[in-house]
Design a protein around this nucleic acid. Sequence first.
DNA 1: CTTAACTACGAAAACGCTTTCGCAAATCTC
DNA 2: GAGATTTGCGAAAGCGTTTTCGTAGTTAAG
Lengths: 341, 341
Amino acid sequence: MSKLTLKQIAAHFGVAVSTVSKALHDSYEISESLKSQIKAYAIEHNYRPNRLAISLLNKNTKTIGVVIPNILNYFFVQVLFGVEKEANKKGYSIITCSTNESFEKEEQTLEFLRSGAVDGLILSTVAKGGQYKVHQKLLGQLLEDGMQLVLFDRVIEDVACDKVVVDDVEAGYKATKYFLDTQCQSVAVVNPIPESNISQLRIEGYKKALAERDILFDPKLIVDVDKQTDIDLSLSFLLNYKTITAIMVLDEITAVQVMQIVRTRGYHVPNDIAIIGFTNGQLSKYVTPSMTMISQHGSYVGETAAKVLIDRIERKDGKMPFKTKIIKTSLLVRESTKPRL
Amino acid sequence: MSKLTLKQIAAHFGVAVSTVSKALHDSYEISESLKSQIKAYAIEHNYRPNRLAISLLNKNTKTIGVVIPNILNYFFVQVLFGVEKEANKKGYSIITCSTNESFEKEEQTLEFLRSGAVDGLILSTVAKGGQYKVHQKLLGQLLEDGMQLVLFDRVIEDVACDKVVVDDVEAGYKATKYFLDTQCQSVAVVNPIPESNISQLRIEGYKKALAERDILFDPKLIVDVDKQTDIDLSLSFLLNYKTITAIMVLDEITAVQVMQIVRTRGYHVPNDIAIIGFTNGQLSKYVTPSMTMISQHGSYVGETAAKVLIDRIERKDGKMPFKTKIIKTSLLVRESTKPRL
DNA sequence: CTTAACTACGAAAACGCTTTCGCAAATCTC
DNA sequence: GAGATTTGCGAAAGCGTTTTCGTAGTTAAG
């Protein structure tokens, strides 16, 4: 019926619990004959030690928590995939929590994970603006509790822990430079994640590329859109404002939507307007025309984060300094941009 | 540094551990003054009870395990989303494991989860053919241990537990009927998951729809493809074999690929060949032409599974009979099919 | 034959928590 | 003021393990 315990095995053989434990661990202290009997019994009745008890004893759970803002976002799923892969390789399992882009949910989740369920945490925060301070405190408490922490992608700078970030500045630079190299001089940006500091980094790269070519940065070419904003309308303003020959869109779905709108208005992609999207998911490859994307290598980000975390968990002694790993992006050139000559 | 425990608080006040525990639970046994002091101290030093200890004590972990074959498959991610949503509502957290379509990995995962880490399990198995028997035994052991189990989507019939399945027969029927109702009489099937019994159910529905119209079933119109098979080649055979006016494709990515290949060969979609895909993910909506899909409501499947599981966990006493919930699919009509008149 | 060394096992502590029970001291009852 | 009741807290058991230490009984050494 319910789970077999050492106690029950001990009772069956009329021996002490410790004897059973030792027998199952093949201890030299126990006679061969008793050992083999106990082992046989354990196998026959399918004994499994209770992990909770073991975890309580040696204060590790061999489990790591992964907290992501949105489980329906392909980038984060890729990260999850990478984390799982690496964690399993090292004998860890993962407990996944999606915060649904809600700060409150994230707070609750972190509170929950403080209670000893995991050895370490891999987190991409939804915090922004004033929420950073709240989080610095909360994460600080976690660290004080001895919890190991790795932030990734959407990180908070001032928290003293390891970090794995995507080289967003370079990504923005790379995309913009590609446009400039392919006769697209008038580059706009559509930003569906205006609150996140990530978008600021990408725009920084964008500015850098413009500056290199002595092109004046025009803030009007940056179009913020969020769930409330009508992309259609924002794009109208943009296209009427000036002749645009290229658009960099900071996520995948919005990129596809922008492309559809632009095409509906009679522009040819890429000849009239070239488009580069961010986050290489499943969409961009199969859309027509297929879309040139910045790939952030989510799976690799996940693997790296897991590696760093487990490394730190397993040698807590070594007070090694915190590191920030920067993962380079790749530009996957497809049909939504003109070819480089 | 490390986690604050009741013991430490007790030591600080020079009282017994039990006193502290009671104080924090606001027990009437403890004087108001001491209670408020202890509470204040706990809050100030950010005390959290250790969940492991509590779980060990009352033999539940408030955690459920979700085992899915592939975390990069949108359907399963939707299920995960649904499970998380429902589980969180009821105060449970989830531990996710992806088996990567590997039977060995699934066995390992189940072994792992047997060890008391979770109260219940939501599982979609990768087992097929002879592996069913192995699994019946393994799952049987889990059930004997008192683990609550809900199978979903890819279920094993003979296991005595709750199940949540998609009405795949009706889905196949519905899709096929739509074709027949819109002047597409020659319907082929492309099956990227030939080993799974799910595809057989869908094909059963397909046959049923044909039979209703007295159309003879032709096995040659069922094209199995797997990772090894070249879809391009298989499609050539099919298109040369007979004039095809409609194709039902049993997953999303393959559906999109089939559509691209068909269009490349000069067929117009939907006028020459109409296409319906399975599993409504992100792709189908944005592809050109947008694709008509069977939606399996993954999120709802997940919610239902979680509901059923938690229900059973929380009243173990009631030996209520096992149920199989059947989730209906929807046909989302888009541009890859002709309109129904 | 005495002492030392093994052999084979049991007892108990520990992990952190909850809960039951017991028991003083203080308060109340008549 | 004696007995009854209440108040406030501590001791201990228990959840399932592992591990350290102790100790019988047996064997080996001198």
